[in-house]
Design a protein around this nucleic acid. Sequence first.
DNA 1: CTAAAACCTGACGTTAACGTCAAAGGCAAG
DNA 2: CTTGCCTTTGACGTTAACGTCAGGTTTTAG
Lengths: 125, 125
Amino acid sequence: MTVTETAADRLIRIGEVARAAGVSARAVRYYEQQGLLISERSPSGQRLYRQDAVTLVRFFQQMYAAGLTSRRIAELLPCWDSGHTDAEQRAMLRAERDRIQAKVDDLQAALDRLDEVIAITDSHP
Amino acid sequence: MTVTETAADRLIRIGEVARAAGVSARAVRYYEQQGLLISERSPSGQRLYRQDAVTLVRFFQQMYAAGLTSRRIAELLPCWDSGHTDAEQRAMLRAERDRIQAKVDDLQAALDRLDEVIAITDSHP
DNA sequence: CTAAAACCTGACGTTAACGTCAAAGGCAAG
DNA sequence: CTTGCCTTTGACGTTAACGTCAGGTTTTAG
């Protein structure tokens, strides 16, 4: 069907991925080393990524921010790609969900304590 | 007024503080080294803490969980002890509050993404 | 053609809150 | 007295996601 290259087929180099996703090139190489990204190589050896690598990197950042490790993300990636999961993956998904929820609760409690002090000190000119 | 020692005056050793607060003795020494705790010393050199050290340690754990560093906690401790703050401390309080709030939002977003996948995979037997 | 900008691999550096081990002293029970 | 648990200081180890530097190749702009 695609006789000529379409825009969706355009491969981009590491710098463009990094800029578009707001991370460093070093980070992108690290993700690839951790098995989170795959790339083709140009004849000279430069990494070439598909456009959706940018979306992926943003997703990794979100998961990192939520406390998941590279390993965990790699183990759960198939869940997003294929939409299919085995029992082990479902257990991991729920475990991470529960952990994050607990963390949200902890942060909320800390937030309340800070707000409490802020309220008190604001009433003390 | 206090002719004899009251229960509130009882000094406890590091192990009791650690157990009561659910941390290691190593952690308690670390907090003291960071200027978060003060202790008297027995004639033989053992640390002796006041009872409220347990409450303090629990508080430190909560702040650590919220992403504050030892340094920040030390800088803000007077706000709790005295209830008084200067401009710099009020700015730090608000900055930490905002940072934690942003983190809560990030976590919530990640939580939503996980729940999304969980919902999909649960409907795929 | 040439200089700047971007890329490569490899490898050591960073950070924070502890963990862990070593070697030794202290303290109550029996 | 000695067994056993607790404590001391000091110092090196851990972890994860990169930062940073070195030394060399490639691509691009003019």
